[in-house]
Design a protein around this nucleic acid. Structure first.
Lengths: 219, 219, 219, 219
DNA sequence: AATGAATGAGAATTCATTCAT
DNA sequence: TATGAATGAATTCTCATTCAT
């Protein structure tokens, strides 16, 4: 019998939870099987978490915390936009491979109904802030075309990143990825990265002429 | 008699299923409430579908079928790439608003575990085919830069579209959209469309020089 | 498989519940064992009653309803007080023997905590009303001494009756009864009845002199 | 060391047990909360008592022991029957107020199923002995009518006392008491006592004529 | 053929009891 | 020796599925 759950063990439990939830979804994962996976009895889970809901929440927090940490690291680099993006992509792909559970868990989170909007705001707010600022700064420096809404630009950018994550970590998206000739095997990473860079690069630099630039000009 | 019920009623049942699954997820939706919603007894449901699994599958098929139909219509237009894309985006946003259930259901599908890869292949294969061909043709015509992998280009393109769909139909993504200053209200549609077009436009037309063009050139 | 719970079957379920609760108490009786006893699956119980609490409540109601019915019958007789009481006692003892479960269940009810006061008021209010009125009328007619508070008199009277019920139906009280030389076997009934009548008779008829008659005279 | 804890602490634990059991019943009271209330760890509880059952038994014993002590004191007085009874009642009511837990616990005990008959015999045997002897002696002295079975007389007498205890200490009986116009507030004590005395007094002194005197005369 | 009540396996949760420290 | 965290059997409750009518 374990004497007391150490900090480490507690972490392990959450990881097991994340792994189970990532694999089976919140409803299909059973507290019992999570406990077993962690080598514990159900009782312990309920000692530390009031109920399944609370445990899910803890896993969600840990997952988002992990992602946020990763994003922070990623955002820290200073470089020319394209190089920065290149490094972001590299890290992202690597992370998606190594911590697939977190990405899959994240995908599950996007399905959660109820009062989880705050969660979205927490994690997505962080990302959106970083990216938007990143874009805005680059626009100031003239590294990126200025005739585009930095918020939406960041949004499209992040959309591409999210889809890459899913495409590397989630079964359905992996399959889909393959259909597009993409490879979710290590070898192709470099190539995919470069192609995506190319796709973005132009978006970053060209100045279009025949599309209205600002909301105000619409009417 | 079966035949009497069939056509219309069966459609209705599937629609109810899709609506329930879209809203509550596959686990949380109950066969009973679906039957009630469709004005049927559970018994009939089980006459037509062996079990919940089978019923889900039928709903999934219908949903994907619906989406495919919509995509076909969308793809049918012939026009200059950017104009074509503009019309695609317009339709897409409109559809996401009007048939949110289908989009939400689709999001649920992307979470399904098990032997659903074939499903992915069915629907995504269709899309990927269309888009890739669309890109390739445009490249031939010189409407789009040629130094890019048409498959991956189509992939990135579709990624952006998928995220738009979700951002217009799924609660979590809607919330996220707002954080980026995006508006999921009718008024903003035009603006968002244009910004996205701008984001893509350059990707379509610029020819980059310092990024390797083909897989083969990598080593 | 039963097709549908008839009125009778539903009654039977409640009787099984009463019997189980009477024997094991509310906490120790399990829904499963009650269902089994009634030859049903747990599911049915939960079809008809929201939860254990609700089922208990239904059993309590039925039990109190039964007791009330019995009390009504008992109260209906018109006769000279002592004869009336004699018949009450007879019925009471008979009932306690035949419907021990109801009496035992009633004893359990007296332990219930929570919002069951209303229940007490329902059943006890009924009894207290009947007895108090019965005493008051007898006082008017001169059949019973008038220098006593009819309410309290009825209270003491009912106390004796309650204890008789328990003594005939509840294990602990039965054992206690025996220690007093009382017999809870059929043969002794008549004798016990008569002794109790004698105990009460005098209370009914003598007019004491050295005990203050009314509340007001106390100070 | 065990010895250190023992005497006082053990008493305290038992008191906590009694208090918890009195309030929540045997099933609903948890060993953990009892230990906490006593400022102990569950471990110690299980050092002294094999299991919950054994602990309950110990509490039951202590409770009955306490009641017995109180009854002994009560029985010690020598006086004329009615005066004696008056003093008994006074003490009883006072005790029921001051040591409600013991009375409530006692009520719980009367519900215990299993091999608790011995318990009944222990405590009730004591009471019944005292009362029966008290009645018999008074009959000899001519203080109480002789045409009544002293055992049953004592039984009825004790029945009235028990009900008074419950009516002063147990929620359900308190509520019931109120319905009869009884007051469980201090002020009414004197009045209730006197009314009960009056109710009993006559039973003690009148000699009825038309009810058979002894068991043997029945046939 | 349609109905919807009954079934019962399985999930969440509690708590008496054990035992490593 | 005392502690209180861990254990896991048992309980309540749900819901996909069956089947008598």
């Amino acid at each position: 019998m374990l004497r007391k759950l150490t900090e480490d063990k507690l972490s392990e439990v959450l990881e097991c939870g994340i792994s189970e939830f990532a694999e089976h979804g919140f409803e299909n994962a059973s507290m019992k099987s999570i406990a077993q996976k962690a080598g514990l009895s159900v009782g312990v889970l309920y000692k530390y978490y009031a109920d399944k809901e609370a445990f899910i929440m803890a896993c969600v927090r840990r997952c988002l915390g992990g992602l946020e940490g990763f994003l922070m690291d990623m955002a820290a680099t200073e470089d020319k936009p394209l190089n920065h993006v290149r490094s972001i992509l590299k890290t992202l792909i690597y992370y998606s491979r190594e911590h697939g559970d977190y990405i899959r868990m994240y995908q599950r989170i996007t399905q959660l109904s109820g009062h989880y909007e705050e969660l979205a705001r927490e994690i997505e707010g962080f990302t959106s802030g970083i990216y938007t600022e990143f874009i805005a700064k680059a626009q100031e420096r003239g590294d990126i075309r200025r005739d585009i809404d930095p918020g939406l630009f960041a949004f499209f950018f992040d959309n591409l990143l999210m889809m890459m994550q899913f495409s590397y970590a989630c079964p359905y998206y992996q399959e889909r990825f393959r259909l597009y000739g993409g490879s979710d095997t290590q070898e192709g990473d470099e190539y995919v990265t470069m192609q995506l860079l190319k796709f973005m690069e132009s978006a970053f630099t060209i100045e279009s002429t025949d599309i209205p630039h600002r909301k105000e000009e619409l009417q």
